[in-house]
Structures are given as structure tokens and as C-alpha cells.
Simulated scan of single mutants.
Amino acid sequence: MSLQQIEKISKQKDIPEWTVIGTIYGAKNVSKAVKTEIKKIAKKRASRLFFSNDLLIEIGKLVTNLAPKSILQAPRQQLATLEEGMAIMRGIPNQVALPLAYWRNSATTPDKANQLNPADDGCGLLWYAPLIPTKPASMLSFIGLVRETCQQYNIEPMITFTNFNQFCTDSTIPIVFDINNPKAKEDAKACLASLYEKGLKLGFVPYRLNIEQQENLDTSKTFWSTSNKIAHALDPNNILGPGRYAKGR
């Protein structure tokens, strides 16, 4: 998409450039204290701050549910997505993230009223998932890498960060493409390969690889020979994930 298209959608959906989502787990008094601290920290940094039990959200649900279906459709959908997201945080599985896989699907439009299956529906999706040092310079460098590389291969640079602790952040980059378009398929694979190679040079090491990438790993190193021995001791018949990562056993 062009910058103009992105800005138009952002304005329509009232979505800022970055959205930060977090979950507070703990006893009521602990959660209350954490909320207070978050409000202090976010006061000068966030344009908007909401908690799941905010009165504004509850009023929004009430208004959108009472309004005719043809009115306030976008806010209704956003609130429904918010509820699905909160359910995930509580450990309740649902389909909130699955429509992402259909972004470039030229044959199927996702309908969460039905059971979605991106594999059966022919969705094109690859993942680039490295670990990033939790330092401003490293994260800015990574953002630049993803935006520049994805643009070269006609891929939308959709970036998600999941913070583990003060030292390490996991990033997941969905490479979404039309699997029925040979050029798009070629671009997606080339984009992943480029992100992988360039990222390693900058110190961004993936924490998971797809099967094709695993097959290209050099498993002659000491790490792999050691892990293969451990795996063989625990799984002598090679039942668990045969060929995955430790292809030498």
C-alpha cells in the first residue's frame, strides 16, 4: 500500500502508528497499583490509554449494541475484536488473529462466523520471527530493516513486538501474499530470505524457522550434535517432530 492509503485507513479506523497492548495479572490490589504506575508512565507518551473495564468502553458497547446494524458498524467491529483480544489474554482461544492470513487471499474473504482454516483456504503466509535486544537503537535498526526490505518485495511491513523482559523482545513479521500469484509467491520467499540474512548480520537471530529453512541449517556444529544426542536419548525412535531442526539424528 502507498503511504496515502495507509494514512486513509488509519484515519478511517482512528488507529495510531503504533498500538501497545498489555495484560495485568495479579490480585486486585496489585493490579490497581500497577494501573496507577502505567498511567504515570504513559501520561506523556501515549495519545490514548484504555483499560478493559473502562467506563468509556462499556458505554461504547451499550451504544453500538442498541444502534441499528447499519449504523456504527466500524466501532461495533472494533469493540468485538477488543473483546476477542481480551479473551486470548485470559487463555480462551478464538479466531481473532486468523483473518490476517487472508489479507492477500484473492479467492476467499474471511468470515469469523464460520470456522476459518487458512491452509484449506489457500492463504499465503510466511513468518519472520527474530529476537531483538530491548534497546532503542536495536529496535529502530530492526524497524528500518523490515520496512526497507519488505518494500523491495511488495510486502506490507506489519511489525509486532512482544516484550519478554528488559533485555529481550520477540518480533513477528507476517509475510502475507497471494499464493495463486507466482510473482507474489516468489517475492514472499525472497523477502523472508533477505530479512533472515540481513537480520543475522545485525544480530537479530530467529527463534523459529519454517521447514524449508530448517533443511538449510548447518547441523554439523557442536550445538546440533549435542542436541541430537539428547534428543536420541529421549526419543530413540525419532517419533517427535522427525526432521525438525535436528535432521542429523
Rank of each mutant, 00 (worst) to 15 (best):
Q4W: 11
K11S: 12
K11H: 09
K13I: 10
D14E: 15
D14R: 11
W18A: 12
T19C: 14
V20Y: 14
G22T: 07
I24E: 10
K32L: 08
K35G: 07
I38Y: 10
K39M: 14
K40R: 15
K43W: 12
K43C: 11
K44Q: 15
R45Q: 15
R45E: 15
R45D: 14
R48W: 14
R48G: 12
F50G: 13
I59Y: 08
L62A: 12
V63M: 06
V63D: 10
T64M: 07
A67V: 13
Q77P: 07
A80G: 09
L82P: 02
E83N: 04
E84Q: 13
A87W: 02
G91V: 05
T108F: 09
T108D: 02
N114V: 05
N114M: 07
N117H: 09
N117M: 06
A119L: 08
A119D: 13
D121M: 00
G122Q: 03
A129I: 02
T134M: 07
T134V: 05
K135H: 13
K135S: 12
P136H: 11
I143W: 01
R147V: 04
E148R: 00
C150Y: 03
C150M: 06
Q152S: 15
Y153V: 08
T160H: 03
T162K: 14
T162V: 15
F164G: 06
C168L: 11
C168I: 11
T172A: 14
I173H: 00
I175P: 00
V176A: 04
F177T: 01
I179D: 06
N180Y: 03
N180I: 00
E186R: 11
E186W: 12
D187H: 09
A190M: 12
A190T: 10
A193C: 12
K198L: 03
G203R: 03
P206A: 09
R208F: 07
L209S: 02
N210W: 03
Q214H: 09
N216P: 03
L217W: 03
L217Q: 01
D218M: 04
S220K: 05
W224G: 02
S225V: 11
S225L: 08
S227P: 04
A233Q: 07
P236W: 14
N237K: 11
G243W: 06
R244D: 09
Y245R: 09
A246H: 06
G248W: 05
